[in-house]
């Protein structure tokens, strides 16, 4: 096809188009730099590399430190049950207590640890202090486990079918059951448990009876916080202070005075972890009922000869269940 005349040029010239259509806006001066020969690109490449090295210089050079075996928390059995036993106590009773824990642990894949209560450097302080280094000791022995449940020798596990994790320790469950804004020392302590704590940030689960916090049944999560908490609690300054109730008053003290401890504490209803068969139970939900996880006899712990007798009826119930 042809025309006699070439087509007229349009009288509306297109606006100047951008020279480069690349998405990266490189200034022309820089582009000229790149346009040179091979040597120039090489030099630029080296310069760029050196800049990169210089920028990353700080992050390089890992030091390995000393060789301490690192076992990640969570790689072992989830829960370790710790009970300190008096080596002078009646052997058959001690055996029964051990069996009580071992049966429960076997059922859920947990571990048990029964250190004698005189093997730790407590000095002249009451023997009940031994629970603190005992938990630390268990953490040393089973560094892969996540939770350490200290259960006093005066307490019995009455409902072995309850799994500790779904019963208490799961983050969502913990958030559900923890008691917030509750005076740490009953009736009217100024310091109250924190609200809006996240379940997975809780490192310490404990209960409260009528008189205050009771460390006879408590769960501590393994980790750096646990070391801090246990070591601070075990400080000789508290052991020598003659707190009326030894370590439980020391616990109440440190928890009330130190925010980094209270922020990790979850107070749960007493019957979930530490129901009292005898003694000053929490008036709301402290008394032992059929089906509770634990039955505790705090009074027998003080004059230990009685424990075997008081436990007898409950051992019978457990045996009947097994059959």
């Amino acid at each position: 096809m042809h025309f006699a005349m070439p087509p007229r040029k349009t009288s509306h010239p297109p606006p100047y188009a951008a020279r480069n259509q690349s998405s990266l806006p490189i200034p022309p001066a820089l582009k000229n730099l790149f346009r040179g020969g091979k040597l120039r690109t090489l030099a630029l490449g080296i310069l760029g590399f050196l800049t990169l090295v210089w920028l990353l210089r700080g992050s390089g050079g890992r030091d390995t430190g000393v060789n301490i075996p690192q076992i990640p928390i969570g790689s072992g059995p989830p829960v370790v049950i710790v009970t300190t036993l008096d080596p002078k106590a009646d052997a058959t009773w001690a055996g029964k207590i051990k069996k009580n824990r071992e049966d429960y642990a076997k059922k859920h894949g947990y571990l048990t640890f029964f250190p004698p209560n005189d093997q730790y450097p407590i000095g002249s302080s009451p023997k009940t202090w031994s629970k603190v280094p005992a938990v630390r000791h268990a953490m040393t022995l089973y560094p892969g486990s996540t939770f350490f449940w200290y259960l006093d020798s005066a307490a019995l596990i009455m409902n072995p079918s309850i799994d500790l994790q779904s019963h208490i320790l799961k983050a969502s469950r913990l958030e559900e059951i923890m008691i917030t804004n509750e005076p740490v020392v009953p009736p009217d302590s100024v310091i109250k448990t924190f609200g809006n704590l996240k379940g997975d940030r809780i490192d310490f689960v404990v209960t409260q009876d009528k008189e205050g916090l009771v460390p006879t049944s408590m769960i501590i999560r393994n980790g750096e916080w646990a070391k801090y908490f246990l070591d601070a609690w075990f400080d000789p300054i508290y052991r020598s202070y003659n707190f009326q109730k030894a370590e439980s008053h020391a616990l109440e003290h440190i928890v009330q005075w130190h925010g980094t401890m209270l922020a990790k504490l979850a107070l749960v209803p007493q019957n979930l972890l530490n129901s009292y068969a005898t003694g000053p139970a929490n008036p709301k939900f402290g008394k032992y009922k059929e089906g509770d996880l634990v039955a505790n006899f705090p009074s027998c712990a003080r004059d230990k000869a009685d424990c075997a007798n008081e436990h007898q009826a409950f051992f019978d119930i457990l045996e009947r269940k097994d059959e």
Binding site: G65, V66, I68, Y120, P133, R136, H137, T140, P143, K227
Partner: peptide, 20 residues
């Protein structure tokens, strides 16, 4: 030297890393 303490705490220089 207490036996109940973990190896890092019992080590004379902690874990020996600058980061710690």
């Amino acid at each position: 030297t207490d036996e109940y303490l973990d190896p890092e705490t019992r080590s004379p220089i902690g874990d020996g890393k600058v980061d710690s």
